[in-house]
């Protein structure tokens, strides 16, 4: 906990450090609150750059948040196309960390943005930034742990069954087909020739009923 306190910005520590440390000491079980302190840590860093509540940039902040949400959705859809395309299986060839990031970050971003809007519709960016950062970070860490654990056990990534299901391209109108139709196959076509020869070791094994 002492280490966490050192990570706060100097101006924040100078102003609030002593009383915050006293408050933590007052808690019956101070270590129970480490995650809560991390949230405060992120807010302390973000608030240094955040305009005050009376700043007229609220509208712009909302626009930035909407853009972030849309970016997250677009990235998620794009990642989904690659994940569900069993013949490409790009995600089995990249390090676990990158796989988890690609899968988790956009989803976390979308979830965090939606939650931020629900929490405070008036000033979503200001309300969202600490939680977006904290939730995205935590989900990414969980994703990395999950994927790494599965890989160590010799299993495919967590989305392998989903990929097998959605990756069907038999004209049965699956979500994968719908996504590919909606987003266009151009990007996949550009990448596929470079991966000719099929998937490498560790690829997602795909089998579906005929």
């Amino acid at each position: 906990m002492r280490l966490l306190l050192r990570l706060f910005p100097a101006h924040w520590r100078e102003r609030y450090g002593e009383e915050f440390a006293a408050l933590l000491k007052d808690q019956p079980r101070p270590h129970r609150h480490w995650l809560n302190v991390v949230r405060c840590l992120i807010a302390a860093h973000v608030d240094g750059r955040t305009p005050p509540a009376t700043d007229p940039t609220t509208g712009r902040g909302k626009g930035v948040l909407v853009a972030l949400g849309l970016l997250g959705l677009a990235t998620l859809a794009f990642a989904a196309v690659f994940v569900v395309d069993a013949s490409y299986s790009a995600l089995t060839r990249v390090p676990e960390l990158l796989e988890a990031m690609i899968l988790i970050l956009p989803l976390a971003l979308v979830v965090a943005v939606v939650r931020a809007f629900r929490r405070d519709a008036d000033q979503p960016l200001r309300a969202a930034l600490p939680s977006v950062a904290a939730e995205t970070f935590l989900l990414a860490v969980l994703g990395v742990i999950l994927v790494a654990t599965l890989r160590l056990r010799g299993q495919a990534g967590p989305l392998a069954p989903l990929a097998a299901e959605l990756g069907r391209s038999d004209g049965s109108g699956t979500i994968g087909d719908a996504l590919r139709t909606a987003l266009g196959d151009a990007s996949l076509m550009m990448l596929r020739p470079a991966t000719a020869g099929g998937c490498g070791a560790g690829s997602i094994a795909v089998s579906w009923p005929t």
């Binding site: 609030y16 915050f20 408050l23 933590l24 609150h33 809560n36 405060c40 608030d47 005050p52």
Partner: peptide, 16 residues
Amino acid sequence: LGPGTLYVILPRLERD
């Protein structure tokens, strides 16, 4: 109200 949450709120209220 966690201590971290409280010290997110207090500086903002003070600033405002």
